[in-house]
Amino acid sequence: MLTLIGLLIILTIVVLLILEKTSPIVAMVMVPLIGALIAGFGINDIQTFFEEGIIKVLPVATMFIFALLFFGILQDTGFFEPVIKALIKLTKGNVVTVSMGTAAIGRISHLDGAGATTFLLTVPALLPHI
């Protein structure tokens, strides 16, 4: 039963966000809260879930915020421009080859196993020139 309620929570959040019926913050807070109440959990249980979740997520969220700021500053200062220019010069602007180069950069940046790192290295570096 908990699995079904969890899947319905995820489906509800996705539908609400796709149809733009609510903001992401409201959908990701209220829908799980209502789902937990429907599942029979009390306020004290929900408070415990919240506290344990914050403890687990806070270090990753802090790192993600720092990474966004860090790579945003690097992008604004033109740090990635030599890599981008070298990639375009090497590929002669061929879209397929640029895509393969982007995939190669993604593979190299994903060596640490974190999808966030791959996203934060590949997208800011190559998005403006796609």
Rank of each mutant, 00 (worst) to 15 (best):
L90P: 05
I18N: 07
L90V: 02
A39I: 04
L4A: 14
G42Q: 07
L120R: 00
L19C: 02
T122G: 03
I34T: 07
A116P: 04
G53K: 05
V15M: 01
G115A: 12
K92V: 00
G53P: 02
T12C: 05
L33N: 07
M100N: 06
P82H: 11
A86N: 15
I73Y: 13
G93D: 02
L8P: 04
I43N: 00
G115K: 06
G42M: 02
L19M: 06
I73K: 11
T97D: 13
L68F: 13
T117W: 11
G115I: 10
I25D: 05
Q75W: 06
L16N: 08
L2Y: 08
E81G: 05
L11H: 03
H129D: 09
A27D: 01
A125T: 11
E81Q: 15
I5D: 01
L121D: 06
M100I: 14
P82G: 08
I5K: 06
V60L: 13
I54F: 12
V29E: 06
T117H: 15
G113L: 11
S109I: 09
T48M: 10
I18P: 06
I54T: 06
G40H: 01
L127F: 11
K92F: 04
S109K: 08
I5V: 07
S99E: 10
T12Q: 04
T118G: 10
A125N: 05
E81R: 13
T22Y: 02
L7H: 07
N94E: 14
L87A: 10
E20A: 07
K56E: 10
P32W: 00
V14S: 01
A61L: 13
T97V: 13
I38D: 04
I43L: 15
L126Y: 06
Q75M: 10
T12H: 05
T118A: 12
T102M: 12
L69M: 08
G113C: 09
I108Q: 09
T97I: 13
A86H: 10
I46C: 09
E52R: 10
A39R: 04
S23A: 03
L11M: 11
V123Y: 10
P124T: 05
R107G: 14
I88P: 01
T91F: 09
T122W: 04
I43G: 02
T62N: 09
G93T: 01
M1Y: 01
H110C: 08
I84K: 12
L74G: 02
H129F: 13
L58K: 12
A39V: 00
G113E: 09
G53Y: 00
A103N: 01
V15S: 06
L8H: 02
I55L: 14
N44F: 08
F71I: 12
I43Y: 05
